[in-house]
Amino acid sequence: MIHVIAFYLFATLVVCSGALTILSRNPVHSVLWLILAFFNAAGLMILLGAEFIAMLLVIVYVGAVAVLFLFVVMMLDIDFAELRAGFVSYLPFGLLIALVLLAEIVLGIGLWSAGPIELAQRAGPVNPELSNIQAIGGLLYTRYIFLFEAAGIVLLVAMIGAIVLTHRARGGVRPQNIARQNQRRPQDATRNINQPVGQGVEL
């Protein structure tokens, strides 16, 4: 009973906040609805018994990705009129993409239930006594270790690429020299003097 209530609660909220993500006029509100959608999707994952995936969803998407979204969107100077101007011209293209996605979902579910491809069973049987983390870790670090590391290398390459593309040597900057700052002592910068009355200080 409680599971059913929770499922419909989470599912409704995911759908509603997903819709509001694209419907709301303020981009910051959009990001916030997106975060709510992620959050409720995590709730659905928990209902499925995939608590590890749910936590990762919240940590990675809500905790990192959405913060960066929000960060960028908050700082943009957005012209709302210009944003809405292209709506009609992009509409056919958007509808096309939506249609393709719908077809893929129908095909995917149809093939899965039809059975010959056995999409869900390719990873081999998992011991039901293992917890999520152990099962995923066991697969990821044995059977799929090369794919996993390849994914890591792809990310590393992307990161280095972004740094190389955006990094430029600028003249006129004076970076902090932390070692020198740490070596500095009060005696280097100040001195105690016993100043006679009525005379100026020698600087």
Partner: peptide, 24 residues
Amino acid sequence: INVGLLYILAISSLGVYGVVLSGW
């Protein structure tokens, strides 16, 4: 729960939203 520490990480990563939203 058996992902207790991940739950704490997830929740603490939410903490930033209160600050960011109030600022914005």
